[in-house]
Amino acid sequence: MSQDSAAQEPKVGLFVTCLVDLFRPSVGFAAVKLLEDAGCRVEVPRAQTCCGQPAYNSGDRRDAAAIARQTIAAFEGFDHVVAPSGSCAAMIKEHYPALLKDDPDWQGRAERLSARVHELVSFLADVLKVDSVAAAFPARATYHDSCSGLRELKIRAQPRRLLASVEGLELAELPEGEACCGFGGTFCVKYPEISNEMVSAKVANIESTEAELLLAGDLGCLMNMSGKLKRNGSKVQARHVAEVLAGDRDTPAIGEGREG
C-alpha cells in the first residue's frame, strides 16, 4: 500500500459497546472486517467503556455526563466513530449534546463527536456508499428494527439493502416490525413481566415468518429475543447483522454453545 492511499484511508474509531465487549466480541471483529474491507483504518481506543445509557436512562445525569466526557475524549482525532449498535450511536449522537449543553467546556466537543458518530450499517451504506458485501449465508432470515436505530437514526433501508447482497440469504419481513422487543436496558429487569409480554409478542411474530435466522443491529435486543426464543425451545438462531454481512458462519449463534 502506498503512502498516498494510507493517507486517504478514513481513520475510524470503533465504539465497541459494552455488550459486544463483554458478551460477543465476534460482532466487534465483524465490524472491523466490514470497515477494513471498505477501506477504513480501524482503531479501538482503550479508554472507552459504555455509552452511559444505563445511568442516563435511570436519571443519573452526573455519572452519565462523566461517562460522556470520557467517551468524547477517547474518540477525538478520528474521522469517524462507528458503533455496531443503533442505540449506543444514538446515545452519543442525540443525547451527549443534550447532556452537556450547559457545560461550556464540553458542549462543542459533544457536538463535534455527534457529527462524526454513526451506527455501523448506516455508515457503510450512507457514508462509505457500500452497496454490496462479499458474503454468503444461506438461510431464511427476518430482521428486527431496533427502536433507537429506527426512530432516532432512521435506519431501515440500509441493512435490508446490504443483506440483499448476501448470497443465499432470503429476507422475510417481520410483522409489527415497529414494535419494541421489550429490552429497553434496565427496563427489562425493572419490569420483567411487562418486558416478557413484549418479547413474547415479538417472538410470536418472528416464528410466524418461518425464518430460521433472526437478525438485528443491537446486541441488547438480540440477547433479549434469543433468550426468549431459547427459553421457548425455538430453533430460530439469532445473530448480529454485522456477523452475517461479514460472512462469519463459524461463530455459534447467540446463546448457543459448542453443543447448540
Binding site: 465497541v16 459486544v20 429487569v189 418479547v199 426468549k228 431459547k230 447467540i254 446463546g255
Partner: peptide
C-alpha cells in the same frame, strides 16, 4: 458448553422469563 444460562445469581429479573446468552469468553478488548 450450552452457550446460555437458565438461571444465574443476581440475574433473576432476566432469567425468570428468558435464557441469558453466555459471554463468548474473553472480552473484545
Amino acid at each position: 458448553r450450552r452457550g446460555r444460562f437458565r438461571k444465574l445469581p443476581l440475574a433473576g429479573g432476566w432469567t425468570a422469563h428468558r435464557d441469558l446468552p453466555a459471554p463468548q469468553g474473553p472480552t473484545f478488548q
